[in-house]
Structures are given as structure tokens and as C-alpha cells.
Design a binder for these strands. Structure first.
Lengths: 365, 365
DNA sequence: CTGAAAGCGCTTACAG
DNA sequence: CTGAAAGCGCTTACAG
């Protein structure tokens, strides 16, 4: 029975193991057993609890005299009073907490998104919790629970797949999607077309005619779209593209290097686009193993413009995503959406191709 | 007045801007205005609210008949009931949320720590929020507020400095420190001595006599200790060390590269230890600019063993930290500490020197 | 085995 | 301008 509950009830449900130990005894209610309540402050200041609440929540203007306000504030400060957030939440029905669900917290790109979101959220006195969708298979269900149980007011979901979008449907009003599987679901998307146009134009301008594609092996729509967008640009430029110039790999370095090596061994292309800078790093390793010179024999372009791009040698030309703007805009839109109960029109983030030393004209001949 | 409050009251306090919009009107209490309560389930199942609570919190054994339990569970599932966490928290006095405060969420190492902690916390049905101590100057005060206001049951603080340790003192029972400024404060520490011994022995075995030190320019005790530990090992081995073989830099790539370049230009050493792999990456860049061959003319060792270490060319020899174990142990100890109100003896994590291609014997002559 | 009732600490009409 | 009171949705003795 316990196990059957684990699926249906949120992860925050009480009553197991350690939770039992933590359960309050009559005389205590947690580590701060002598924790201050609003009544205590009221008593100390000789006012009512209502007055304390009004003053400390900033709703006292024109309702409480300046003298009383000062007294209450001073008393609260002196005693070190902090309102109990659970009680506030219970009363107001809303936690000031947002969630951010990303495919992989370890990837620096998502770290950037998180920091930007957290910064924006803090302005509204919200905080942000992180969900790693890779390490947590039941994340979508848990997220719906958290939303339902009011633990979290809303969530930003980065790069969802079709299945989780389905699970998340009942809570979609509290969710802002970025680069969703279904483009109409996305509240924020990347201007992949423009980004890929810049890539294709850059390759073409250098004189490349045969351009390979090293794809990410993840079931995320964004990668499929990148591929289609680049192919469309090739068509536009009259460049042909062969399936054998393609390979795919996960972001794990060794398998990715192996895949890159196989691709380079049969390579008849002079330039290679990679779905992610991490894949480009694998290409560098493979090229090193095979003695293929970058950019002399092979031009490489990455995606994301991680700091890594400039740590590689030669420094990597890459498509930059405005992570800071995306994080901030996401929070802004999510908050509006949760409160006004209607979504704003989707936002399309521009991409910028940052030219560095990994691209050059194709080898002569 | 509002601004004075911002300092003293937690970031989760209600009553500003958007919060006002979000405040409940009489007939609604949040986005799920028709959200289910325990009474609704009780009514639907024709039992009392007590019974519902008992069953769904897994405390029904021997108190509620199997039939009633089944009925309640079925009804709750059918209705999609999720207990309101705020009410649970208010009642039990404890949120099942932990915080993890790290210097920089963007650094992959801290991403690893986070994922490990989140995984361990989930086993106890806790969740983890992240605090970036770099982007949030008032983090220590805010953390104390969060602890005080019961939003968070406990916190793991990675690499605190002296000032914040002071601010955090009142809440120290709910905090587990990793690599703290004050070593007696640390619940988890690294075995820097053994790690540095391995580094020194490795250099010495290769025949290096002049070994430089590229230090992190952060006010964290861990870096000072790394330095002292390595110097002690040099002494033990009878190797001398000159101040001019030292430099320091932040983790920002361009300034770090610049600092590395200046160090290499006046270099009279044949090997270089770096406080972090990110600094080693900067050394690689500088070496590339100056035409210094690694490892032919200069051996390099990093610290952390990020995935980056294997993306650099040649692959970087680095001191690995057991991030997964540290994250998991930290959660375990924190939970014990919060509940049993006494700390376990400190845990010392072992380090492992991973040998790769960036170290070799010094150049002849 | 089950239910009625108290109470966690707040916020907010409402009455003065 | 201030206070008494209701109630948010739970959990948990306590009484049957």
C-alpha cells in the first residue's frame, strides 16, 4: 500500500521513516521549538495580531498609525520574528515558489538559464526549485502533484517531449514551455531558422559544398527542428546533403567521440555542424585521434556557445542562445500567465552566430 | 519602510506587486480554484476527514479496516486528490524541503553535487532548492529567514566564507557545511593532504623539480588549504618553491588566460598545479598563444576532474572529487542532524589523482 | 474500527 | 485607527 501511494501522492507527503522522526511532539514543532509567532510579537508590542500582520505585510498604509507601525516593526526586528510561510501559504493559497524543469542540470547552459530565472524570480520575491528531468523519470507526474498540492505556483519546462506534455496537460495553465515538442505549446522558442541560415550562409561564404551534420541523440523536438532548418537552408543555397554525412550521439563524451570518429573516417565533407558544443568537443577529440586538422581540413560549428567553446583549441564557432534573456522572460511570462490565467503570445529568441577559429575555407582540391 | 522590510523579512513574504494580484478573492484560492480538499474526499467516500488523513498518510495500519482503506484510496485516486502541502506543513511544523547553497550553480561540479543531493533527498521524499551564493549577496540572511520561516528544513552550504558563517550561526543546527572556512564547522571535508601528496609524488616521480601554482582568486578556505598542503608536500620531498612561480585568477576565462600567460612568460618551472580544471583550461589557452607545448615543455595538473578535463587536448591529469558520494552523504547527515539535533563526526572525502596526457617528464636540460 | 473536535499561524472581512 | 473572530486544510490526541 505504501508503495502504491508513492506513485499517486506527491513526494512531499509526510509519514515515512525520517518523516516520522521529524513529526512534532506535543511540546515542539520543529527545530526552532521556541519559534516566534505573530501573537508573541503582538503581545510584546501590546497590539493585536491583526495589527502585526497588517504592518508586516505592508498593508498598513492608512489603516495603522505611524507610531504603531514603528512600534510593531521595531518589536518584530528585536525579537527576530519571521512569519510562518506555511501559514501564509495556507491562508493565501499560493506559494511564492516556481519550478524549473530541465533535461540536465549539469549542463552549463541550463545552469545559466537557472541563474537568470532565479534572479528574475527574486525580484518578485519568488524562489526557484530545479527539477532534473533526466535523473527523475516520474518528474512530470511529480510536478503535477506539486502544482496541485500548491507547493509550487508555476513551472518552466525546458525541452519537454510529447509524453510528458501529455502528463502535464491538466496543469498547463501553470506551465510555461520553452522549446516544447509541440511548437504551439511553447511560450518561448528559438529562432532556429535564422540561426541556421547564419550557419549555412557562413559555410557557403567560406566555399564549403559538402557539410556534415552531427546530431544529438535525444528525443527532443528542438534537435529535429535544427536539422530540418539547416537542410532547408542548404536547399535554398543549392547545396546537396547526403545521409552518410550524418551521425548522432548522446552527450556522453566517450560514446560521442566514438561516433564522431566513425563519421570522420568515412567523411567526404569539409565542414560539420554539431547540435551542441559538447558534441563539437567530441569531434575535436576524434579529429585529434585521426590527425584531422581543424579548421584546415575540417570546419566545425557548434550550438549553445558554452564557455567551453572558447576553451577548445582552436576556439569554436558556435550559435549563441541568449540564456539570460530567456530565463528572465520565462519567469515574467509564467508569473503573468499564472495570475492572469491567460498566456501571452509566444516569444521567439534570436540566435547569434559567433565566429571563431574553427571555421575556414575548405582544403584546396 | 518597504525597503527596510526587504532586509529583515524573508523573500517569501507576501504583499507586493504581483503578490497582490495573486491574493485570493473570497471565492477562489489560487489557480486550482476548485481544488479538492480532504473533506471532499471524505464526503465522497462517506467517511470522516480523519479517516481520509489516516489512510492517505499511511498511518492507518490497525486503525482503519482494510475495506475502508481501499475505499478511501480508490476515491482519492478517482478524484485526483492531492493533500495541501501548506496545511500539512503548518500542522506538522516541517517542510520537506532542503536547500543547497553553492558558490556558482553554473559550474558543472556543483551541478553534480546538486543532482546527487536531489537524488538522495528524493528517497526521503524531500526536495532540494538551489541557492547561488555568488549572484545573491544577501543569501546568508535570506537562508536564515527561510529556515526561520520554516520554508526549508535544512541547508547544505558548500564552501562558505567566514562572514557568512557568522550570519548563519543562529541557524547552524540546520546547516551542514562542506569545505567550510572553519574546518571544525565542516560536516564534510576533502582529504586535501592525501590529494596533494598524490600530486606532489606524481610530479616528483616524473622528475620535476620546479613546480608552479596557479591559484583560484576566491576567498575560500579550501584554496588556501590546497596551497598549504601542496607546499607541505614539496617540503617533505625536498622541493623548493618560489613565490614567482605562483599566480592567481578568477574562473572567468579571459582574465584567467591573461594571468596564465603572464605567469608562463616569466616561467622557470616545468610543471604547474591548478586549483581548478577551469584554470587549467586557461593555462592551455595561454600555452597555445605562447607556443608552449603541453606536456612536452610544461606538465599541467588540474583539480575537480570535470568532464572538461577530457575535452582538453591533451587530456588533463586532474584530482577527482567524489561529487556523487558527497551529495548523498551530505543529505543523509543533514537529515540526521536536523532531526536528532546533534551532528555526526565530520566525514572526510578521499580524492583520486586521475593520470592523463597532460603530465610527462620535464624537458631535457 | 471510526468520528468530532482542537489547533497549527496566519490573513482578512467586519465591527467598532 | 484597532481588535475579535472566522477560517485556510490538514493531523492527531481523545472519546466512543
Amino acid at each position: 500500500m505504501t508503495s502504491s501511494r508513492k506513485g499517486s501522492i506527491t513526494a512531499f507527503h509526510a509519514g515515512r521513516d525520517i518523516a516520522t522522526v521529524a513529526a512534532p511532539r506535543k511540546e515542539s514543532n520543529g527545530p526552532f521549538r521556541d519559534s516566534l509567532t505573530g501573537v508573541a510579537v503582538a503581545k510584546a508590542a501590546s497590539v493585536s495580531q491583526s495589527t502585526v500582520s497588517l504592518v508586516l505585510s505592508g498593508k498598513a498604509a492608512g489603516r495603522v498609525s505611524a507610531a504603531t507601525q514603528a512600534l510593531v516593526e521595531e518589536t518584530a526586528r528585536r525579537l527576530g520574528y519571521q512569519p510562518n510561510v506555511s501559514a501564509q501559504m495556507l491562508r493565501t493559497g499560493m506559494a511564492k515558489v516556481l519550478a524549473l524543469a530541465v533535461p540536465n542540470v549539469k549542463q552549463p547552459y541550463f545552469g545559466q538559464i537557472f541563474v537568470a530565472a532565479e534572479l528574475a524570480a527574486r525580484e518578485f520575491e519568488y524562489s526557484v526549485i530545479l527539477i532534473d528531468t533526466t535523473t527523475d523519470p516520474g518528474w512530470a507526474g511529480r510536478l503535477v502533484s506539486m502544482l496541485r498540492s500548491r507547493l509550487v505556483a508555476g513551472c518552466i519546462v525546458y525541452a519537454s517531449d510529447g509524453a510528458s506534455e501529455e502528463t502535464l496537460r491538466p496543469a498547463r495553465r501553470q506551465i510555461l514551455f520553452i522549446e516544447a515538442e509541440n511548437p504551439r505549446t511553447s511560450g518561448i522558442d528559438l529562432d532556429l531558422q535564422a540561426g541556421m541560415r547564419a550557419v549555412a550562409n557562413h559555410f557557403a561564404a567560406l566555399g564549403h559544398k559538402r557539410i556534415g551534420y552531427f546530431a544529438a541523440e535525444y528525443p527532443k523536438a528542438t534537435f529535429k527542428r535544427r536539422f530540418r532548418a539547416l537542410l532547408a537552408e542548404f536547399d535554398r543555397l543549392g547545396l546537396r546533403h547526403e545521409p552518410e554525412w550524418q551521425a548522432s550521439a548522446s552527450f556522453e563524451l566517450d560514446p560521442a567521440t566514438e561516433a564522431a570518429r566513425r563519421l570522420l573516417e568515412k567523411s567526404r565533407f569539409t565542414a560539420l555542424f554539431c547540435d551542441d558544443d559538447l558534441l563539437a568537443a567530441a569531434v575535436y577529440r576524434a579529429a585529434g585521434q585521426l590527425g584531422v586538422a581543424i579548421p584546415g581540413q575540417l570546419s566545425v560549428v557548434g550550438f549553445n556557445d558554452l564557455e567551453l567553446a572558447r576553451m577548445l583549441h582552436p576556439e569554436l564557432t558556435s550559435v549563441a542562445i541568449p540564456a539570460n534573456a530567456i530565463g528572465a522572460i520565462a519567469v515574467d511570462r509564467l508569473l503573468r500567465q499564472v495570475q492572469q490565467k491567460r498566456a501571452a503570445p509566444p516569444y521567439v529568441a534570436g540566435l547569434e552566430l559567433r565566429l571563431r577559429a574553427s571555421t575556414a575555407p575548405p582544403p584546396a582540391g
